[in-house]
Structure formats: C-alpha cells, structure tokens
Write a protein that binds this DNA or RNA. Structure first.
Length: 587
RNA sequence: GGUCCCGUGGUGAAGUUUGGAGUUCACGCCGGCCUGUCAAGCCGGAGGUCGCGGGUUCAAAUCCCGUCGGGACCGCCA
C-alpha cells in the first residue's frame, strides 16, 4: 500500500532511518511548535500515521492544528537528539519548505493524550477533533481490521453477504422500535430493525444457505456504557445445521477477529450450560476471569432451627477469600449493612454475613442460631479459613443465584478489558424464563422462534419452565457479546409454541404473517447467531465504553452534542407526513 | 420512572464541609526573548453570568429548593 497522493509523497509515521537522504513531502496538522528564535523552530507534523519533526529555519508562522504541507529532506537526527518515545524519533526533516494549506483556530482541548481527561461532552461536541487523536485513530482502525477479519472468516466458510431492509413493518415484541412515518401512507409507519432476525430466516427459506451481514441494529431503549441506540452486529444464519455447526462457524469469526486485534489466537472457546452458569456464577453472562464461585449449601441446613433458612428452597454462599481480596474480606459493619441493603434491592429477603475469626470461630449476627454441625459443614463446603468473609442467601433458586452473582461481581470483578480474555459459550438456555404475572403465560427467553430442545418436547405443556431451548449466548469477560439459536422450521411446532405463549392463529398471522407464511413452502432446518461488534472491539481495544470505538456516538440521554440531534422539524415536513406533535408534558 | 456522582476563564483542577471582594495552580492563548528542542525554556499580558432560575442572608461558587447538561447503575434491552 502506498500513502502517496498528489499533495504528499509519504505519510508522517512511515518515515525512518531507511529513508535518510530522501526528499519527501508530507501533509498534515501542526501538533506542536517549539520555537528557538527567528532561525530555528521545530514543527511536529501529525497525520493519521504518526508525527514527524520538521526543522524550520525561515520563521514560517504555523501554529497548532494549522494544516501544512512540508517538503524536506529526511535526515538522521544529530547525536544526542534522538527521541526514543517517537517511532520516527531517529530522523527529522531538514531544509524544509512549508506551505500553509489552512490556518486554524486554537482547538478547545489539546489534541493528544491529555484530552482523555476532558469532559466527554466536549469531546463529543468536537468529535472531529477528538478523532484526530492517536487513541481514537487506533480504535477506529482496530475496529476496521476486526470487521475485515470477520468478513474474511465468514466468506471463507461460504457465507454470502446480503443486505436487508432498514424500513420494515413494526413487530412490537421485544425492544422498543424506532418508527419512521410514511409520506405516501399518512398515519402509517415503518419500523427500523432491532435486528435482521426475520429477514435472515427468510433468506434461509429462500435457499441462500449461509447468510452474513455486518448489520446496523436500532433499539429505542435506555443507553449504557455497553449500549447505544444504534449498534453493529455480525449477523449470520445457516441452513441444514445443528447447534455445534453454528458455534463452530461463529467461533472461527470471533477468534479471527481476536487475532486481528491482538496478534494472538485465543484457545478454543469453552462451553458451559446455562444452568451451570447460574449455579456457579449466578448469572447467564459469567465473568470467568475470577473464581469466588457460588457454593451450594442447601443440604447443610436441612432441618435447621434458623427460621430464615428452614423453609428456603435454595441456600447458597460465596467466600470472599482474605488472601485474594484482603480489602473486601475485611470490610466493617457499615459496609456490611450496605451490602445487605444491596442484596435486598436485588430481591433477597436478607443477607447473612459471617466473618471467620482467627481461631476459626464464626462471627455473625446469626451465629447463635446455627448448630455446631451446621457451622462445620458450612465452613467445609465453602473452604473457609481465617479472615474470610462468607455471604449467604436463602431464597428461591433463581434469587439466591442472581443476588450472589451480583455481589460476586460487585466485590471482585475487574474492569472488563483487564486480564485474560475469557470467551465462553453459554448453552442450553431455558425456552421460557418465567410466567407473565398478568397473562399467566410463559415468557420466551429469547424470541418465539427458538427451537425447543428435542428431548424436552414431551414436557412443553406439562412443565414448560424446564424445557431447554437450542439457544446459546457468547460471553466475554462478563459482557454478553451476542446470542443465537436453532430456529423452528416446522409450522406445526411453531403453532404449538405460539399456543403456549397465548398467541392464537389469528394473532400470529396478523403479527407475523409475512414471516410465517413462507415457512409453509419448505423451510430448511436452520439456525444462526449475532454478536455485537461494538462490544467486542471495545474490549479488544482496552476500552470500558463502546462510545470509544464509535466515531460519532450519542450521549446517555440519546443526544448528539455535535449535531444537536434530535431537533425540531418544520411544520411543513410534519404536514407532509400527516403528523402533529403534542405539547411536551409539563414537569 | 428511580438511585448515586459531577458542572468554577478555552482545558484540567483547588476553593464548597465551616458563607465574607472572582481567589489560586497547571496547560492552552496573545506579545517579547531565545540556534537542538520534543507536553522546550524564560519574561509579560489577556481571558469569568462559578451550568441556569428562584429562595435564605447585611453578604452565596459555598446553604436550601427547582431545573438543564454529562457520567455510572437499577428498571428497560423478546
């Protein structure tokens, strides 16, 4: 690849000792000017590739962020003036001619590492200046190479890139949609896709066999560090496959992306069942970089006199190991009260804390209610030693898992980008995740097109909550990267699932007719997956926030400080769309 | 919808707890000096509605109420 254009012969960062003696022309921005009188000034010229020091002896005025074109001779720096901190630090440009291509106002913040400390709102307001910085250039280029590796991996496996519509009918299940008013059909609306889910399944019916797309998805839900209104997924679907075929194909793309970003290929991605993930880590997106696993204690308290434990279906505990987490294990009464409050917010009735004293004596407000046998089996089960802090929750199984899983994260989870990358497939998700309190019907865990596990079909009606789905998630360091499933391709089974959900034929036809009718014409067995590229790239880039790997992101309230979107529109535009706005509700 | 943190020259901070003149530090900016620096150095200067509104007070960056904006999280994200 060459960086030369009509206005330059090289890029700044590519020059080095090998170019000494060459006459070159660079173009870029003035990163810094160091003046030593009329006869000598150093101009650091920056472009996307790096910085080159230019020695100026004619007093040319060129200040921070002015756009310049510099022609000079690549020269080895004099002894003692080499800058080891700069990739181009062995050389400099001498005998320079500077052409000012554009002057510039002083930037609102320094275009270097110091801007990491600048208020993010200001960075976003001047995002075009923020992106000039090395960190953002690196992140965007990392993202591009991840995209490229994914494309190569998918195409190498026979996946065909197909673009799918952004304007589609509203299918109001799931995430809140962005709506687009129709001009030709006033009062009617398109929806923007939450994902290309329906389209890609139709492509399987259409015989495409293997589809992929680096697809933009849009969801009108509240924003977070790992969530934007619009985000990008690798979306894929394949025909005539089982779960393992899908996991293998997606694994290749993920590992290729990781290799492109880090230069290293991670080990094969391990698998854990959803039930094991919940049991051991208390969450369906386990962060397996650290231990502190949940320990089953229900059997240790059979027949206990302690009322809070006596009738609980599930008792679990975690051990905050004093050797690994000295600060967390040694927290005082005040912090323990806060932990208890946190547990209650998470749905627990309470939190039992036990401190293990020097002689192994248990110190706890509830110690007096526990028998010696219970104490010793508790200590044995948790492997507790002096100085440890033990946290116990007794409740429904799902609650003990969820509460302790969250406390485990609160107490010991490192920042998402730190430490080794621990990819894990979470498999065998339940088909339903509980009963809707109003409709009394089961709620789908993923979407209603997930294929039930064939072994569990017999208990679909009798015991729906214990039916597994052929559904799976990909998790990295405690972040859900994505999910997928084998889909239902048999109309009869689909009808059966809809019936369980309380969706009759007529309703199903009205809501999903355009999607279901094609399945009558011979749908192949198929399944797929989608994972979030923003999240993957953020972690691989060492960022804790996906905004850092998006060129123009929105703030947490969904605004763009640079363009001021969203904004009002002309009444004429509204009239054309047949729309009228309501006054904003008074506060 | 909720909880918590933040808002002070262009930028980052200190000052707020315990009210007393827009006070301070660093960077940047403007001018001067300076021939080997590299986040150059030295000297001088400019630059402010302390987010906004209201209240308490003789007096508010500081205390109270409201509001706007930013961030983290809960809800939400089939």
């Amino acid at each position: 690849m060459t960086n030369s254009t009509s206005l330059r012969t090289h890029s700044c960062g590519q020059l080095g000792a090998a170019h000494v003696g060459s006459r070159v022309t660079l173009a870029g921005w003035v990163a810094r000017r160091r003046e030593h009188g009329d006869k000598l000034a150093f101009l650091d010229v920056r472009d996307f590739s790096g910085v080159m020091q230019c020695v100026i002896d004619d007093g040319t005025d060129a200040r921070s962020e002015w756009v310049v074109q510099v022609t000079g001779t690549v020269t080895a720096r004099p002894a003692g003036t080499v800058n080891a901190n700069l990739s181009t630090g062995e050389v400099e440009l001498t005998d320079c001619t500077v052409v000012v291509l554009n002057a510039a106002e002083p930037p609102p913040f320094p275009i270097d590492q110091r801007a990491d400390e600048v208020d993010e709102n200001i960075r976003l307001k001047f995002r075009y200046l923020d992106v000039r910085r090395e960190r953002m250039q690196r992140n965007l280029r990392l993202r591009a190479s991840v995209n490229s590796a994914i494309r190569t991996a998918m195409e190498g496996q026979g996946f065909v890139e197909v673009e799918t519509p952004l304007l589609m009918p509203s299918t109001p299940e799931g995430a809140r949609e962005f709506l687009v008013p129709s001009r030709k059909e006033p009062g009617s609306f398109y929806a923007l896709p939450q994902s290309p889910q329906l389209w890609k399944q139709l492509l399987m019916v259409a015989g495409v066999d293997r589809y992929y797309q680096i697809a933009r998805c849009l969801r009108d839900e509240d924003l977070r560090a790992d969530r934007q209104y619009e985000f990008t997924q690798l979306d894929a679907e394949m025909s005539f496959v089982t779960k393992d075929d899908v996991l293998a194909a997606i694994s290749r793309a993920v590992l290729a992306a990781a290799h492109a970003a880090t230069g290293e290929t991670p080990p094969p991605i391990e698998q854990i069942t959803w039930h094991d993930a919940m049991n051991r880590f208390g969450t369906d997106k386990p962060d397996m970089r650290f231990a502190m696993e949940l320990v089953e204690l229900t059997d240790a308290f059979v027949g206990t006199a302690f009322k809070a434990f006596a009738s609980a279906p599930s008792i679990k505990g975690i051990r905050v190991d004093a050797a690994t987490y000295p600060e967390a294990a040694a927290i005082g009464r005040n912090k323990l009260d806060q932990l208890t409050e946190r547990a209650k917010q998470l749905g627990a009735k309470g939190l039992v804390w036990i401190k293990v004293g020097d002689a192994g004596a248990l110190e706890s407000p509830v110690a007096k209610f526990l028998s010696d046998a219970e104490k010793s089996s508790l200590v044995a089960a948790l492997g507790a030693t002096s100085g440890d802090l033990l946290l116990l929750v007794a409740d429904e199984w799902s609650t003990t898992c969820a509460v302790l899983g969250q406390l485990r994260n609160d107490l010991a989870r490192p920042p998402v980008h730190e430490g080794p990358y621990r990819y894990v497939w979470v498999v065998d998700f339940p088909l339903f995740i509980g009963i809707n309190p109003t409709t009394k019907k089961p709620q789908p865990g993923h979407h209603p097109f997930c294929h039930p596990h064939p072994d569990d079909l017999v208990k679909m009606e009798s015991d729906p909550l214990h039916v597994r789905a052929l559904a799976y998630d990909l998790v990295l360091n405690g972040w859900e990267l994505g999910s997928g499933s084998i889909r239902i391709h048999e109309p009869e089974l689909q009808r059966r699932v809809f019936q369980l959900l309380g969706i009759d034929d007529e309703t199903a036809d009205r809501k999903f007719g355009f999607f279901l009718q094609p399945f009558r014409y011979g749908a192949p067995p198929h399944g797929g997956f989608a994972f979030g590229i923003d999240r993957l790239v953020a972690i691989l880039a060492g960022e804790e926030n996906i905004r850092e790997v998006i060129a123009f992101p929105k703030t947490q309230s969904g605004l763009d400080p640079m363009t001021n979107a969203p904004g009002p529109v002309d009444v004429g535009q509204l009239n054309e769309l047949g729309l009228r706005t309501l006054p904003r509700p008074a506060n």
